[in-house]
């Protein structure tokens, strides 16, 4: 059996998959990947089910070493510098680590979470149909906690299949769309307008339970205590201090603060990827628009296998390398000669 050993990893990195919905009535939150599109893209590249378990890597660096045979992996999500023994590895592509080789990843650039999918998946014992880590509930496999150095992710030996890249639509630099409700009537029109008209930042104290939003103070009409009711991914609750908290996949299943709005499901992954401190805005949309976007997003997920492409005979994937380096300083995105140097290096 092959395995990928975690040789170094920062906090906020864990095994995640499509999560475990279905037991929220018992207080069990669904967990699962912050960015489902990126998870699905990484899995598609190595032939896994869209929402198979993969490594969700937080903003910091990480490295993984193959043991006991070759391991085929794929990277998607927040881009970062990646190499195997100095050989650059592109995002949105698959790559095979030979036995003993180490994949080294830098800090996330232009996002928070990257996904490392492993061909044949990660061996583990599903609980409620999922390997996703929910540390508070003691759930997750192979480890019911965030990953640490020395952890082993067991899998099967690489199939030797040809490497692939995947063509994903560009992520729009657009406001995060929300639907008002369920408790928007706890806020004045003026405060609702303030919410959608203002620039926001995600606080550095945010985590998989909730993103604290920094911006103007949103005031309640009738105080901040409501009787607890159910929450969803993307519920934006406003506690007493007027600084909203967006609820993420490890949220409590119920909450006692008024919820002014909810991030639409099609934008949730894009929202989850906003790095701490980077300004962004919300935009209110209609139910019809939000539900149409859900269909579009579902179609995009379904189209992923059709978006796979081959990689040229040199194992280089120029487009993906260029994309991965857009935020970097070393490489010009327009200069073909620079590309070849970067790729060869």
């Amino acid at each position: 059996m092959s395995k990928l050993v975690v040789t170094s990893i920062g906090p906020a990195s864990s095994v995640q998959d499509g999560g475990r919905p279905g037991s929220q009535r018992y207080g069990l939150t669904p967990s699962g990947a912050m960015d489902r599109l990126a998870l699905a893209a990484a899995n598609t590249l190595v032939g896994n089910d869209l929402f198979a378990a993969a490594v969700e890597i937080g903003p910091f660096g990480a490295s993984f070493t193959a043991h006991g045979g070759a391991v085929r992996v794929a990277l998607a999500g927040a881009p970062r510098n990646a190499d195997i023994g100095g050989r650059a590895v592109a995002f949105d592509s698959s790559v095979t680590l030979a036995d003993g080789e180490t994949l080294t990843l830098g800090f996330a650039r232009g996002g928070s979470f990257s996904y490392l999918a492993i061909e044949h998946g990660i061996a583990g014992e599903p609980m409620f149909g999922s390997l996703a880590v929910n540390a508070r509930a003691g759930l997750g496999s192979p480890y019911p906690r965030p990953l640490q150095s020395g952890d082993e992710l067991k899998t099967q030996a690489a199939s030797g299949a040809a490497e692939r890249r995947i063509e994903l639509p560009a992520t729009p630099e657009a406001p995060i769309r929300v639907l008002f409700g369920p408790q928007d009537d706890e806020f004045s029109d003026e405060n609702k307008k303030l919410f959608v008209d203002s620039e926001w930042k995600i606080s550095a104290t945010s985590d998989r339970m909730g993103y604290r939003l920094e911006g103007p103070q949103i005031k309640h009409l009738h105080g901040h205590n409501i009787v607890s009711d159910g929450t969803v991914n993307g519920s934006i609750q406003v506690p007493g201090n007027g600084q909203p908290i967006a609820l993420m996949p490890d949220r409590g299943t119920s909450g006692g603060y008024p919820k002014i709005a909810t991030v639409i499901s099609a934008d949730f992954g894009r929202f989850a990827q906003i790095s701490a401190g980077r300004p962004f805005r919300f935009k209110a949309v209609t139910m019809a628009e939000a539900q149409a976007e859900t269909k579009t997003f579902r179609d995009l997920l379904r189209s992923l296998p059709d978006r796979l492409r081959g990689i040229d005979e040199f194992g280089l994937n120029i487009e993906a390398l260029r994309d991965a380096n857009v935020a970097g300083q070393a490489v010009s995105a327009t200069d073909a000669a620079t590309w070849q140097v970067a790729a060869a290096g």
Binding site: P21, G22, Q24, R25, V227, S228, D229, G230, T231, V232, T253, S254, S265, M287, A290, Q291, T294, K295, R298
Partner: peptide, 22 residues
Amino acid sequence: ITETVPTYRSLLVHYDPVQIDF
């Protein structure tokens, strides 16, 4: 409907909007 969550005063009904709209 994919899941229901009863609370003190409300029932939260999770659903798939591709199958049925609001």
